[in-house]
Design a protein around this nucleic acid. Structure first.
Lengths: 212, 212
DNA sequence: CTTTTAATTAACTGGTTAGTTAATTGTATA
DNA sequence: TATACAATTAACTAACCAGTTAATTAAAAG
């Protein structure tokens, strides 16, 4: 028992910092997150953050890297190369949707990062984000090569997919509020399940790719 | 000449604060924007900000209200009620796209606001955002009533439209950077014109609404 | 048991933050 | 020209910020 029982557990402390940082960065944003507050949330001394992550930016990068790897893994695990391009596309969209819904910090962090023009985004983060798009783009290309998809603009379709799914997740409280104010009758999908939305997005994208 | 020439111009000062605040809030975010920095950018004393807008939040609300009214006006001016639902939809999307492109603070501010779950969004802002969606939703409904559009989920389609257009604008520098690194061949639309993208989004949404 | 090393802490720093206050300036009006 | 009022300012505050330091604790290694 050289590992588990001691109160001092470096990996546990590090993990705790990242987990609480995910919550804070996703709700308050980078500038709005205080390292004092974070350390209190973790029950650790503030100096620990700088001991493990050098500075606030280093922690933020670790957080982003973590969540980008999570979603990338979640999707690649579900997509087996044997499947048809059509099924792969469906899997991509539905996996992204349900993951985003059960891990709402993902849409929040992603939209915040992408709203910044991200021009100062560190190389490694940039690469991770591009990998996710490459996955999507490859599916479209494969379908095109096989003759089942029309020629398309993958970047735009990708943004239509993740844009809509991310916004659906982040605006959930807003849309419920809108539904309660019934001065104007608006269908805000406040009661919709994420599965229904992912399915709708999927059939829309397929309708586009199958052509008129 | 009782009005124009004096150095003290309340409305000019107020306008200057809002304009510079738009730039700062859209690039640095709410928490990342300093009132000291803003006042220096305007060449005015910091106390002027609080004199005219009470506090930082009040200024932020004024900024958001301003840009939401701008885009709402831009769209409603172009949409005349005589046109068909199909043309109105096209006008909505293309006007939004070109406005977002020529006023990139709009996508930045909107995505930032919407990534926050916006649960604390003040009533009036909430209303302004809903008005824009109501415009879009009404067009779909009209088309549906006239039998030219299929039944749809307007909220999801709206997010597909503004999600993709906003992201295309905010990620422009990112996508150009991606194009320069040619280790992976990825079509990132780095050279695309906004007109082509708006047109592509329009035909996609129409393909969805016209049905298979 | 002792030494070494890694994990953790309290206390501090210098700079920045939003917001306040009281005095001052300029302008329109009586 | 005096007065009243709106616009503007310098100087201030108290809280908060990211980040540092040097000392302390606990566990692993010898």
């Amino acid at each position: 028992m050289t590992k588990k029982i001691h109160k001092r557990d470096a990996t546990a402390s590090k993990k705790s910092i990242v987990q609480h940082a995910i919550t804070l960065f996703s709700t308050r944003g980078y500038a709005g997150t205080s390292m004092d507050e974070l350390s209190k949330a973790c029950g650790l001394n503030k100096a620990m953050i700088f001991y493990y992550f050098k500075n606030k930016k280093g922690l933020y990068e670790a957080v982003m890297e973590e969540i980008l790897q999570e979603i990338y893994k979640a999707i690649t695990q579900k997509i087996s190369s044997s499947k048809s391009a059509e099924v792969q596309l469906e899997t991509f969209i539905k996996t992204y949707g349900s993951f985003a819904c059960s891990h709402p910090y993902l849409p929040a962090l992603l939209l915040k990062e992408l709203s910044d023009s991200g021009a100062v985004l560190p190389e490694q983060l940039f690469t991770s984000m591009r990998k996710l798009f490459a996955l999507f783009s490859d599916i479209l290309k494969r379908g095109e090569d096989e003759g089942v998809f029309q020629k398309s603009m993958p970047m735009v379709l990708y943004f239509m997919v993740i844009g809509s799914l991310n916004l659906i997740v982040t605006t959930k409280p807003l849309r419920q509020k809108a539904a309660n104010l019934d001065d104007i009758a608006l269908e805000t999908c406040s009661e919709c399940e994420i599965e229904d939305i992912s399915h709708y997005v999927t059939s829309n994208i397929l309708a586009i790719l199958k052509g008129a």
